[in-house]
Amino acid sequence: MSLSENLFYFLSFLGIFSALMVVFAKNPIHSVLYLILVFFALTGHYILLNAQFLAIVNIIVYAGAIMVLFLFVIMFLNLKKEGNTSANKSIFMKIAGVVSGGLFLLVIIASLKSLEPYQVKSDIKMDIGLVENLGKVLYNDFLLPFELVSILFLAAMVGAIMLGKRETGERNF
């Protein structure tokens, strides 16, 4: 077994274990920290697949920006642990959720059986994930979606400020 195979299995198990801990951790802060671990494992996968640009963007955008936003909101809201709330989901609801999710996984895996194994072409390009190549594709073929994303960000920014704004007479935190 070569190094890259070992790395693949290690990162996969790390990612799946951390994803399970995100769901089953009692404390929301632990969930956020495990989610950061998932993102780092996925970044390792991106580097293994030679997508360096997206690996760096994943670290900066997800682990850097989005997760800090989550941590900020959790500490801002001063949450109690979930077990203390009166309206806890019953054990039957949880079992039903796990069973339906597992059946969904079963359907997806079962549909893979009818696939023929994919043969990788020998003359495949290896440098597609580098910044130079990706920038050319982004600004030649995807220029209009790229500009639309900027408008989306503007709308999201305005929407977040409008939602978060305190109206007159409303109580503070």
Partner: peptide, 14 residues
Amino acid sequence: CIGVIGVLIRKNAL
């Protein structure tokens, strides 16, 4: 599927 299960069984919106 782990994400789907989490959406189904947790009640905390975060």
